[in-house]
Amino acid sequence: MIAENTQTQMRKGILEYCILSIISRGEIYASDIIAELKKAQLLVVEGTLYPLLTRLKNNGLLSYTWKESSSGPPRKYYQITAEGQAVLSRLDITWKELVFAVEISMQGRKD
């Protein structure tokens, strides 16, 4: 139970970071983000993404534009804002610190 809880917390923590980095690569559609996240085995269901995207957008880290789709309804394409970019670079640093911290703490472990 504790393990599960920690796992989800860890995933949850990096999910936003991953989403930001995926979007920072360029304009992207929500279902493509999901495809990427699935590839990375971070996200299983799509429904979880929308609240996150909305929250990031409301915090000014993301913006979106409507684009016509050849098949079906118009789509929302997300892009990162300058603020989001700043947050992302700060998170990059944090991530590197974390990786360092984890590596240090894992050193000398037998398995």
Partner: peptide
């Protein structure tokens, strides 16, 4: 599923 991912 939502609850699971948000709950923690």
């Amino acid at each position: 599923d939502f609850e699971e991912s948000e709950g923690a």
